[in-house]
Amino acid sequence: MSRRLDDIVTELATRTVTAITNMSDEHERWAVYQTAFERGDCSDLLFDAVAAEPVPSVALSIVLQMLGTLPVLARPAWIEQLALPDNREYATRRANDIAILQSAEVTQLLVDEAVQDSWSDWLQLRLAEFSKEPDVLSRLTARGRTRRIRRYAMQRHAAVERGLF
C-alpha cells in the first residue's frame, strides 16, 4: 500500500473516529470510507483516496457512493480519478442516470419512445421506487425491463394516484 493512501486513510479514520488495524485490508479501508461518506468534511480526502486506492472496485465504489451527493459539474473530476477505463465508463453512465433521477421532470423525456430503452435497470428501479410522476410510473408499469421494476412502478403509481406522495 502506498504511503499516500496510508496517510489518507489515517486522516479519514482520525476525522471519523474509526479504528483501523490493518491498512492493507480493503475491507477495513472500506469501513473507514463508509463512515466518511456521512460527513461533509471528508470529501477532499475521499477524492484523493479514489486515485490512491489500489483496489479498483473499492475506488469505483467510492465514486458511485459520492456521485449523488455531488454537484453535477463536480462529478466528472471524481470519475477521472478512476484508473480503469471500464470503471470510468460505468461511473459516467451512473452519473448520467443520477442526473435524470434528479431532474425536475422526467415525464418530458418520455416523448421520445426510445429513451426508456437507454435507461439502466438501476435508473428504472429508482424511478419506480421514488418517482411522483404518474406518466413515468405508467410507462414503467407497462414497459419496465424487469418484473421487479414493473411491480414497484405499479405499487408506486397506485400510491401516487391515492395522493399518498
Rank of each mutant, 00 (worst) to 15 (best):
R3T: 14
L5A: 04
D7F: 05
I8M: 03
E11K: 10
L12F: 00
A13H: 06
T14R: 14
T14N: 14
R15V: 01
T18D: 07
I20F: 01
N22R: 07
M23T: 14
S24H: 11
E26G: 11
H27T: 15
E28T: 08
R29Y: 05
W30M: 06
W30L: 06
A31S: 07
A36R: 01
A36I: 02
A36S: 09
E38F: 12
R39Y: 08
R39Q: 10
D44Y: 09
L46M: 10
D48F: 11
V50T: 04
V50F: 07
A51S: 15
A52C: 05
A52Y: 06
P54H: 06
V55L: 13
V55C: 11
P56F: 09
I62Q: 00
I62L: 09
L64S: 02
Q65R: 15
M66Q: 13
G68V: 05
T69Y: 14
T69C: 11
L73T: 14
A74K: 06
R75M: 10
P76R: 01
A77H: 09
W78T: 03
I79W: 08
Q81P: 04
E89A: 14
Y90E: 15
Y90F: 15
A91Y: 01
T92M: 06
T92Y: 03
R93T: 15
D97Y: 06
D97K: 04
A99E: 10
L101G: 02
Q102I: 08
S103T: 11
S103A: 06
S103N: 10
A104P: 08
E105F: 07
V106C: 00
D112I: 05
Q116N: 13
D117C: 09
W122I: 05
L123C: 04
Q124D: 04
L125C: 09
L127P: 04
A128I: 05
A128C: 06
E129F: 12
F130H: 15
F130N: 15
K132N: 15
P134L: 01
P134D: 04
P134I: 00
P134F: 05
S138L: 14
T141I: 03
A142C: 03
T146N: 02
R147V: 13
R148W: 12
I149D: 03
R150A: 04
R156A: 08
H157D: 01
A159N: 09
R162N: 10
R162Y: 10
L164V: 14
